[in-house]
């Protein structure tokens, strides 16, 4: 039985299509039909283990339309569908296309990477924007908190991602987190490019992760605040060579006294 493991993955689209199709039915009838269809499709998978379900019985939306017609549930035809349903239906049609199978498989494999990335991006965004500069003596605490925040958010994001196929609510949460992740990534990239400009006179939200122990000592020596450190260009003096503004330079000597 080579398709035994992904059986539920194959069945799920049909059950979901049926659920959407039958949303006007009372809950009892719907659950009954859905669970009955599930066992029916399982039988097919066991019987025909060397071909995929879609090859056997056709794509979910076609199957469900045929089934609804056959049971005599045609009261909600295409004419009564809302725009959103029509869109989701055509998306489903696309995703049922034979060539889309590879794309979908690739996406499924890539998903955990995206879950990690979005968690990372959101974590970084939060620590940049809400854990701004404070007392340089407490820097290590802030760095620790930032790191922990990023790790926790990656964990949460993975968890949400793994649960997203369980129910509609999880799915919505996951979509929301993905959108937040995209926004955070955009903000991250925008921030980085702005800061690549040597003339940048930025906000005081520079990431603590980029301050070295030497910077802290420099600030203490010169008696300046982190805000001044960034805004008055000390940061760049510390790190960027005068000839080529784009090359990071590791400072070996600290300015004396202050």
């Amino acid at each position: 039985m080579m398709n035994k493991a992904p059986a539920m993955d194959q069945i799920q689209p049909y059950i979901e299509a049926l659920e959407t199709r039958l949303r006007n039915l009372p809950d009892e009838d719907r659950t009954d039909l859905m669970s009955d269809l599930e066992s029916h499709l399982r039988e097919i998978i066991v019987d025909e283990s060397d071909t995929s379900l879609a090859e056997r019985i056709g794509p979910p939306h076609v199957y469900v339309d045929e089934l609804a017609a056959s049971i005599g549930l045609d009261e909600d035809g295409p004419s009564t569908r809302s725009l959103a349903e029509a869109i989701s239906d055509s998306l489903r049609r696309f995703s049922n296309h034979a060539n889309a199978e590879k794309v979908r498989r690739l996406w499924t494999e890539m998903r955990p990477a995206w879950w990690t990335l979005r968690g990372f991006a959101i974590g970084l965004f939060l620590s940049w924007n809400y854990l701004g500069p404070g007392d340089p003596d407490l820097l290590w605490i802030m760095q620790f908190v930032s790191g922990a925040l990023v790790i926790v958010l990656i964990g949460v994001s993975m968890r949400i991602g793994r649960n997203q196929d369980r129910s509609r609510n999880w799915k919505w949460v996951s979509v929301a987190v993905s959108i937040a992740g995209v926004l955070a990534s955009i903000s991250f990239i925008a921030n980085i490019s702005a800061r690549m400009d040597p003339n940048y006179q930025g906000q005081n939200s520079f990431p603590y992760g980029l301050i070295t122990q030497e910077d802290v000592e420099f600030m203490q020596h010169s008696g300046i605040t982190p805000e001044e450190f960034f805004e008055q260009g000390f940061f760049y003096e510390q790190r960027w060579s005068q000839e080529d503004g784009m090359l990071p330079m590791i400072t070996t000597s600290l300015p004396s006294g202050g």
Binding site: Y63, E66, L67, A69
Partner: peptide, 27 residues
Amino acid sequence: GYEVVRRLRTKGLVDVGDASVYGTLRR
């Protein structure tokens, strides 16, 4: 369910679809 589909096909109703047969069985 699916055995009924196969038997119908063997007997000559080659175009019969699983959804229709399954729906008919249910009805």
